[in-house]
Design a protein around this nucleic acid. Structure first.
Lengths: 107, 107
DNA sequence: CGAATTAATCGGTGAATTGCGATGAACATG
DNA sequence: CATGTTCATCGCAATTCACCGATTAATTCG
């Protein structure tokens, strides 16, 4: 992964609302897939604003959209999270620090 | 670490120039401590711009300043990188939701 | 003290981000 | 076909970001 890619992803993660969205998607996706409205309900923001944040996460490749009827279902891209983990580990390694690697199986 | 803190640090890491600065500091600090001018030489940016980027990294707690004569020496805060590694690992863990064990259901 | 060095900070510009309400496309259903 | 639902997208305003040159504070040294 290039510096630009890493920086892009970092910027996508650089907003509390987007962290919340990611965590919400992660917590719900055991049972169901969430659409934009589901996310909006959990936040004190307008639908259009949430949609924008979702777009940022989409562009960063952290989530994917799956159209389903009149609504779009969003899900976390675990493959990309794995990539990110590796890249981030590499970054920290490069800064002369060993990453504490927990071995979590990406379901 | 709070979401806001994580988001702040992510935003600080969300610019290629700042990644370069961090890596440069890391690469040089084996031999010497670097001042703002040293960093500026390695980048196609004005001194004031580099100083701004350094300030962002300072505010995020990723580096520290040590005044030394007429110049300031900057060094990476490995303690904070360790914290960040832990927090980031926790974040990814939270997003890579664990699939419950098949036999783990309470009878 | 005066001159030089270093680098933070100020002021300005243009672009990007964050938020909103409103609009419109896509789809399901009566 | 008309209606309702969902939600991406389009302005729009306010704020922040990235960059620059110029200035200024602090320090060293002659």
């Amino acid at each position: 992964m290039q510096d630009d890619d890493i920086a892009n992803i970092m910027r996508a993660l650089g907003h509390p609302v987007r962290l919340n969205i990611l965590r919400f998607l992660a917590s719900q996706q055991q049972q169901r897939e969430c659409c934009c409205g589901d996310v909006t309900e959990t936040l004190p923001l307008a639908q259009s604003t949430v949609s924008q944040h979702i777009k940022v996460l989409l562009d960063a490749g952290l989530i994917e959209r799956k159209p389903h009827g009149t609504r779009n279902r969003y899900m976390i891209r675990h493959d990309r999270l794995a990539e990110l983990g590796t890249a981030f580990g590499g970054l920290l390694d490069g800064l002369n620090f060993q990453v504490p690697h927990k071995e979590a199986e990406p379901a």
